[in-house]
Design a protein around this nucleic acid. Sequence first.
DNA 1: TCGATAGTTTGCAGTCAGTGCAAGGAATGC
DNA 2: GCATTCCTTGCACTGACTGCAAACTATCGA
Lengths: 199, 199
Amino acid sequence: MAMVRGRRAHRKLATRDALQRAALELVRSNGPDAVTVEEICARAGVSPRTFFNYFTSKEEAIIDWDAEIDAFVTTAVAERPPAESPVRAIRAVLASAVGDAMGMDMWQDRMELIREQPGLIGRFVAVMGSVQRALAAGVARRTGLATDHLYVAVTAAASVAAIRTAIQAWTDAPDGTDPARLIDDAFAYLESGLAPPAH
Amino acid sequence: MAMVRGRRAHRKLATRDALQRAALELVRSNGPDAVTVEEICARAGVSPRTFFNYFTSKEEAIIDWDAEIDAFVTTAVAERPPAESPVRAIRAVLASAVGDAMGMDMWQDRMELIREQPGLIGRFVAVMGSVQRALAAGVARRTGLATDHLYVAVTAAASVAAIRTAIQAWTDAPDGTDPARLIDDAFAYLESGLAPPAH
DNA sequence: TCGATAGTTTGCAGTCAGTGCAAGGAATGC
DNA sequence: GCATTCCTTGCACTGACTGCAAACTATCGA
């Protein structure tokens, strides 16, 4: 957490938080398409114009993304034991990261939201793009290859495809299903070169 | 090609084509954000309201997608020799499909467009989602597993990630680079379980 | 050939997202 | 205190997109 100095900076954080909270609540009860920026602002006690000083789109307020998470993912992947293959490193980092996230109320809420409101998938995909770049940076550091080397890019993209699929499967699965298990299985398929299951 | 009977159906096709052509030309010269639906319609000789009888968004007119292609991909994957693994089957189908597409002027144009106008990537991703569903259906038919089986879903998603990455790499590569080669390399990484290149 | 029918186009009016600008207000540094 | 800087807000505007009802036109049966 960055230090907050001064009344001004504090108020900014509070406003941002109020907007996000208002957006989340309204979308939760009405669905994403039935909520207008105006309503969100009314609830947060802020003018509509101000909304766009904080977020560039309605969806961004609902599911925002912190650049700090990307930085964390990059270094976490880079610093896994060198003996591990890149995919293994990614698998380890994501399994624990997602596991942690599921423990946090805020994320539990958002995941539930995505589960219920398919209209937010677009935004979710955008966020995953951010994760993909972070993973690519980590793999690049770890292998000494360039970020845009084909191997690095494919590894990051395929890994994100795997988590995305696992999360998708989880949203379709019955309540109580363990997401970590699905992520693990998805990565196992990846690491096997996508060989069909013995079955 | 479906048979066109009657003047009415013929005119409809012509209008659709005119709109698409107009959109493509304008975007080509001005970039996607600088083109309005109104301009597209003026050039196609049609009222703005009519535009939305044909396409649900501006982007859809620029890069549209035919459901017939999806159907083709599904059966092509399903009918590859049974000895091939699912990824191999996908690789074979996509390599030839993309190879063919590159030969067609229309697609060459669109690819150039995506290369030059990063603002269209969102729409491109949407189209890839359609391809992903088609691939999943093909793999399901071929393995006897359900379409939403985790293995099937991961295979389709990872394959799409591989093509998308290859195309991305191609857009960044110098002119004259062979896209088929990049696709091939990307799938080779996938099939190896994302093992890092020897080098 | 004519007239009923059904499919298409279009104008109109309206909602909503998102942006640029300039004025007002409040925190901050000196 | 006072000037500066940052933030908010209202206003006016562009542009995507939708529903509705009226005008038009191809089609088809009598």
